[in-house]
């Protein structure tokens, strides 16, 4: 009998990095299925290319940087799938591939890998693609149309669609973002498995609606159009790039809502979700700094800091 010596605790929560990432993948399945149903074969192709190139890119960059291969933690697959679901169904496959590689190699790998990236890789890649090849990213396809007629998104043509269409996803848009019931199904799964907490999705969607309404948009319409809901559930909640404390998460969600409303109202792009989240990603360390929990037995953090500094 050989006894192990290891420090306490001797039990561990069943949640592991890999299990959490798998939960996210499972939660994305309804969106993926809805995307395939609405936009057809090209959606499957994009998802496959994107996921495979993200995983391959991760393996390559970890090899080059001499790190332990961690593709088993599934984070690259999550990045790839989220990126694909964020693209227009008519995006050429090589654009998706370039985006995936940019996400895992430049945004994640070169900054130190999982946990050290200060931007959400999938979103940073989408922003990269949007600036690089704006034409491909903003050519939309009408859903359920065999001959893929280009249509205007609800953001470009707010009067063109009913609320029912907006909700069910019978609108042109990115593969994963259009079908709201699928997204909500994913959200329920993520909440049920305790993968994420409800704060960021709820506050971000609500704040977006409120700020858009204040700037003259429709409250419900602005929450249902564009990628707001998808981003609120799957991207703003990215562990690495969102604040730690609940208080911080509310500030973060409010910031995202405000920037979305500002970009939609005054910006060059009709949609602002990508840049809004990226900007708040960058602000996350500052938010974390100012929303630290008070430590037990201390008066409050500010006094303690003053003491530590002086």
């Amino acid at each position: 009998m050989k006894l192990h010596l290891s420090p306490a605790p001797h039990v561990h929560s069943p949640q592991t990095t890999r299990a959490l990432m798998l939960n996210v993948l499972v939660a994305l399945i309804p969106c993926a299925i809805a995307g395939v149903y609405l936009f057809g074969f090209s959606a499957i192709l994009l998802m496959l290319v994107s996921v495979l190139s993200a995983v391959a890119g991760e393996a390559i960059i970890q090899k080059i940087l001499g790190q332990k291969s961690r593709i088993n933690d599934m984070s690259a697959a999550v990045t790839g799938l989220i990126l694909a679901l964020n693209l227009s169904p008519r995006t050429p496959w090589w654009v998706a591939m370039a985006g995936s590689l940019f996400a895992v190699i430049v945004v994640k790998g070169l900054f130190g890998g999982l946990g050290d990236n200060f931007l959400n890789p999938a979103l940073a890649a989408r922003a990269f693609l949007l600036v690089c090849w704006p034409r491909y990213l903003t050519t939309w396809a009408a859903p359920l149309a065999a001959d893929a007629v280009a249509g205007a998104t609800p953001l470009a043509n707010p009067a063109g669609y009913t609320l029912g269409q907006l909700f069910l996803g019978n609108i042109p848009g990115s593969i994963g973002e259009v079908c709201k019931p699928a997204i909500l199904l994913g959200l329920v799964y993520l909440l049920f498995t305790k993968t994420i907490t409800w704060q960021i999705p709820v506050y971000m969607t609500a704040f977006t609606g409120v700020f858009c309404a204040l700037m003259g948009g429709g409250f419900v319409e602005s929450m249902l159009s564009g990628g707001v809901l998808f981003a609120a559930v799957f991207m703003a909640t990215d562990y690495v790039t969102c604040p730690m404390s609940t208080k911080g998460q509310i500030v973060y969600a409010a910031g995202i809502g405000l920037i979305i409303a500002l970009i939609r109202k005054f910006g060059l792009y009709p949609e602002g979700v990508t840049f809004a989240i990226l900007l708040m990603n960058v602000a996350t360390p500052i938010i974390d700094r100012f929303t630290k929990r008070r430590v037990y037995g201390y008066e409050d953090n500010k006094k303690k800091e003053a003491k530590a500094n002086g």
Partner: peptide, 13 residues
Amino acid sequence: PFTPMTLVALPAG
């Protein structure tokens, strides 16, 4: 052979 990347031509790129 492929469409150039606008980003690279911008200062950010």
